[in-house]
Each structure stands twice: as structure tokens, then as C-alpha cells.
């Protein structure tokens, strides 16, 4: 038996290193290509008009998607209005009243499974609940669909934030005679606020790019919507529509819209990261 590394073993190691590096490069190529194309093609079409003007008809030059930006904001606002209270209240129950119980595990299981349900299913659900009831495709239906997508993220981050508040802080409040509600609303929630805010913005960023559920709930609108019970334009649906269009001007606008969404996600991710890093109390 010799105690030198056999040349075969060394060669195998070198081969595997090359293979792994190859994998990394092969995958890096498309991933960076996506970022690069979005930035370069998006920047070249960027102008002030895209924020203010309406989508152009085929073969027309110029135009923008002011209505889709406003529409996306509207739908996201509705989604946040529904998902934030639901997510935070449920997180409070799981973290403050039911910590470590079977029920808490049950809620966590439900949320994990919910977060794996395809987004288009949320769209079908919102269609069945809202569109069939109100009789029209609408911003409200889109908001409901996105809200269900956001709830798991909001609940999870809120629960994590609440759990990171030390037990001693709660005992201090209870020790001066605070009720549970006073302890949670005035001491625990404010302390957990940074991470809850991070969770809400992350979930909004994720929802901002969701297309499939909006395609079958909010539909699209070439003009500004006159209320939340009407079909409404959104950025992701605009990208989808214009990506399939044979007109260059519309395709260019799809890239600009993609750049806006990716930039939004990038900013939110960076802000959320630095927020999480600074998250020591006080």
C-alpha cells in the first residue's frame, strides 16, 4: 500500500472541478443574459412618455403604459389591504398565543402548502369568488388573487419578527400589569415592525411581477380604469400582451416594463437586506 495519492484520483478531482466550473458558467450565461437584456433593451426604450401615455395601437409610434403602472399600484394596494391584516393577525396568534402547540404546526403546514400552489390557481379562485359574484373582471378580483399569494410570505416574516422579540421584553410589560393586547400592540409589534415591513415589501415585490392570476381576473384595459370593479391594465399583463405582438414598438415597451419591474424587485431586495442586517433593536 502506498501513501501517495494515486494519479487517477488526482485526475478525477481535476476533471470534476472543471465539470463543476463548466456547470456554473453554463448556467451563469443565460441568467446574466436575462439581466443584461432587460437592462440594455429596457434602458434604450425608457422615456418620460412611458410613465404618462397610454399603450399605443399597432403600428403607432411612441406611447407608454401610465395606465398599467397605475393599475398595478391599484391591484397591489388592494392585495396589501387584504393580506397584511390577515398575515399579521395570524402571525400574532401563532407566535403569541399558540407558540409550540399542535395548532401552530397545523397553521404552518397550511401556509407552506399554500405557498406552493401555482399562482394561476389563485386566479381561478378569485374568478370563482369575485368575478362570478360581481359579474365582471376587475381590479378587485386581481387584488384578491394576489392577496392569497402574499399571505404566506407576510405571515412567515411577521411570525419570525415577532419571535425574535425576546421573551424578557414581554415579561417586563406583563410585569407592570399590561394585558396581552397592550403588551403585543404597544411593545412587541413595534419591536418587530422592521422585519414585518421587510416581509410586506418583499411580498409586494413578488406580487408585482405575477402575471397568470391577473390574466384571468383583472384582464386588461387600454385606458385608465374608472374604479376597482372594472377590468384594469397591469404591467405584467402588458408585458405578456406586447411580447406576443408582432409590432416592434409594442415589443420595446414590453422590455421597458420588464426593466421597471426588475428594478423594483432589485431595490426592494437590497433595502430588505440592509434592513435585516440593521435589525438589532434600538
Amino acid at each position: 500500500m502506498s501513501y501517495t495519492v494515486a494519479p487517477m484520483r488526482k485526475a478525477f478531482g481535476a476533471f470534476m472541478t472543471v465539470l463543476a466550473t463548466g456547470c456554473a458558467l453554463l448556467l451563469a450565461l443565460p441568467l446574466f443574459s436575462i439581466l443584461w437584456t432587460v437592462i440594455s433593451r429596457g434602458m434604450s426604450g425608457l422615456s418620460l412618455a412611458v410613465f404618462t401615455e397610454l399603450p399605443p395601437p399597432p403600428l403607432m409610434q411612441g406611447g407608454g403604459f401610465g395606465n398599467a403602472i397605475l393599475g398595478s399600484l391599484t391591484v397591489l394596494a388592494i392585495a396589501a389591504l387584504i393580506s397584511v391584516p390577515f398575515g399579521i393577525m395570524a402571525a400574532i396568534f401563532v407566535s403569541e398565543f399558540a407558540r409550540g402547540t399542535k395548532f401552530a404546526n397545523f397553521v404552518r403546514f397550511g401556509i407552506n402548502v399554500l405557498s406552493g400552489v401555482p399562482s394561476i390557481i389563485m386566479g381561478l379562485f378569485a374568478y370563482a369568488v369575485v368575478v362570478l359574484t360581481t359579474g365582471t373582471f376587475s381590479a378587485l378580483a386581481g387584488g384578491v388573487a394576489l392577496a392569497i399569494l402574499m399571505i404566506p410570505i407576510v405571515e412567515r416574516t411577521a411570525e419570525e419578527g415577532l419571535k425574535s422579540v425576546p421573551m424578557e421584553t414581554r415579561q417586563g410589560a406583563i410585569g407592570v400589569g399590561a394585558t396581552n393586547f397592550q403588551t403585543i400592540s404597544q411593545i412587541v409589534l413595534p419591536a418587530a415592525l422592521p422585519s414585518i415591513a421587510t416581509g410586506v415589501t418583499l411580498s409586494l415585490a413578488r406580487a408585482a411581477g405575477e402575471t397568470a392570476p391577473l390574466l384571468i381576473t383583472a384582464l386588461f384595459n387600454n385606458f385608465y380604469a374608472q374604479g376597482i370593479l372594472q377590468p384594469i391594465a397591469t404591467l405584467p399583463v402588458l408585458i405578456y400582451n406586447f411580447a406576443g405582438a408582432p409590432y416592434k414598438n409594442q415589443q420595446d415597451l414590453a422590455w421597458v416594463a420588464s426593466l421597471l419591474i426588475v428594478t423594483l424587485i432589485l431595490i426592494v431586495s437590497i433595502v430588505a437586506r440592509s434592513f435585516a442586517r440593521r435589525q438589532h433593536f434600538g
Binding site: P166, E168, T169, Q171, G172, A173, G175, V176, I187, P190, A191, F281, G282
Partner: peptide, 13 residues
């Protein structure tokens, strides 16, 4: 009946 704890636990306020 008030209480002072082992580890100082001021509120994050």
C-alpha cells in the same frame, strides 16, 4: 405586585 427581572429588560422604546 411589580417585578424586576434577572436580566435588565427595558422595552425597545
Amino acid at each position: 405586585i411589580g417585578m424586576v427581572f434577572q436580566k435588565p429588560n427595558p422595552f425597545p422604546k
